[in-house]
Design a protein around this nucleic acid. Sequence first.
DNA 1: CCGCATCCTAAGAGATACTG
DNA 2: CAGTATCTCTTAGGATGCGG
Lengths: 119, 119
Amino acid sequence: MERDWSCDIPEKRLIWAHITSEAIKVIEGKWKIIIICQLFAAKSPLRSSELERRVEGVNQKMLIQQLKQLEADGIISRTLYPEVPPRVEYELTQLGKALGPSMAALIDWALLRRETLSL
Amino acid sequence: MERDWSCDIPEKRLIWAHITSEAIKVIEGKWKIIIICQLFAAKSPLRSSELERRVEGVNQKMLIQQLKQLEADGIISRTLYPEVPPRVEYELTQLGKALGPSMAALIDWALLRRETLSL
DNA sequence: CCGCATCCTAAGAGATACTG
DNA sequence: CAGTATCTCTTAGGATGCGG
């Protein structure tokens, strides 16, 4: 299916609506964007403990939960190094990195919104 | 504040993370994207009853609730015509229309995701 | 160091009936 | 026609303690 957001066909718009909802479902969740941004910023894999430190305010259970969901949704990958003590590293997949433009567009919009509503 | 998503400064990335989370909070909600897309597609104001018909599966309470939130967040505007029976029309604000590029980017990503994960 | 299990609370979603 | 008010049910979020 080829994207044509500007098209005039109402039926097609509805399909985009559902596809977009689907995309949003994957990245919504209290800590997901923060996690994704931290991985973008790090430019390298991060360990659980490191993420827990960098994602301010998150507790371990929530962090793991969100990481598992992100992994299930194909956005990050998890690598276990069988050492003692265990080491686990998370990093963005190609698909995760491909979120860049969407994030940028959302930031642009959020900034416009702040301006518009004088926040 | 100027956006620089590609910057290497971790601290700045975190600010983007929170701004993006903020943006997503505004458009998440089970029916919001559908509503927004319907208003984009209509290219003109829509009445409550018309929206209720077009947003398939929504019930009246949820529709009104989501519309109120979208209005409070500056995305749509509500116009009451003091007739009998009452008529109310909703349409996208400038800020709402400015969501276009973000929606487009998310659709692109969702399509890439479908392809990547063979959905 | 990582992750799981348990238990709890708050918020989201929805069905239904009612009012101006 | 448009919107409220209740009353449920489900899901998300969070605190804490245990185990490999």
